[in-house]
Simulated assay, not measured.
Amino acid sequence: MFDDLLPPLNEHNLPYPDTIHPIVVHFVIAMVLFAFLCDIIGYFSQNTRLYEVSWWNMLFATISIFIAIIFGQTEAGLAQPYDAVKPILNLHTLIGWSLSAILATITGWRFILRSRDPQKVPVSYLAVSLVLVGIVCFQVYLGDELVWVYGLHTVKVVEAIKEGTL
């Protein structure tokens, strides 16, 4: 019914040249990891200016993760996942949405800490940030598996799905 309103899909089964989700999500990954690194270095070196760098990275990572989710959901829907990939894709989706809530909560906590005393970051915050880094790393592993093992949005897999051989 609405098929004539949608743009045609290319060889990657996308309405645009290539996947956008990995591009945006790499910003999130880099900003979260860099924020944690700045906090750790700032904590041990007493260089409190790094806390400001960390704060801004967390803020922009929180905004960016929602953009990454929008493109991730769109691209997951267009991927036409086959049976073997569905459990990994579902787990990646669940963790992605959960990660957005976790990241927003930690960034909110960081805002409160920064408002109270921008010169200090408690060890409890660093511990929670380390858990966040662990979740991000696991999510990266799942995303890599979707592309490099299962081949979502690669030309050969898209062709195999269209031909019905996969």
Results as ranks from 00 to 15, higher is better:
4 D>G: 02
5 L>Y: 14
5 L>H: 13
11 E>G: 09
12 H>M: 08
14 L>G: 09
15 P>N: 07
16 Y>W: 15
17 P>S: 05
20 I>A: 06
23 I>K: 14
23 I>F: 01
24 V>D: 05
31 M>Y: 11
32 V>L: 13
35 A>Q: 07
36 F>W: 10
37 L>S: 06
37 L>D: 02
38 C>D: 09
44 F>H: 11
46 Q>T: 07
47 N>F: 00
48 T>H: 15
48 T>A: 09
49 R>M: 02
52 E>M: 07
55 W>N: 00
55 W>C: 00
57 N>Q: 07
58 M>G: 05
59 L>M: 12
61 A>F: 11
66 F>Y: 02
66 F>R: 03
66 F>E: 03
66 F>D: 06
67 I>S: 03
67 I>E: 00
69 I>S: 01
70 I>V: 13
72 G>P: 07
73 Q>M: 12
73 Q>V: 11
76 A>H: 02
76 A>D: 06
77 G>E: 01
78 L>A: 04
81 P>V: 13
82 Y>K: 01
82 Y>L: 09
82 Y>G: 03
83 D>T: 10
86 K>T: 06
87 P>D: 12
88 I>Y: 11
91 L>E: 13
92 H>E: 08
92 H>G: 08
96 G>L: 01
97 W>I: 08
99 L>E: 04
100 S>N: 00
102 I>L: 12
102 I>H: 02
102 I>R: 00
107 T>K: 01
113 L>M: 07
115 S>Y: 11
118 P>M: 08
118 P>F: 06
119 Q>M: 11
120 K>F: 05
121 V>N: 14
122 P>Q: 07
125 Y>W: 13
125 Y>D: 12
127 A>M: 14
132 L>A: 11
139 Q>R: 13
139 Q>Y: 02
140 V>S: 09
142 L>Y: 05
146 L>P: 08
146 L>A: 15
146 L>C: 12
147 V>D: 13
149 V>K: 14
150 Y>G: 10
151 G>D: 07
153 H>T: 04
154 T>F: 14
156 K>A: 09
156 K>L: 08
157 V>H: 14
158 V>M: 05
159 E>S: 09
160 A>F: 05
163 E>A: 15
165 T>Q: 14
166 L>V: 13
166 L>I: 12
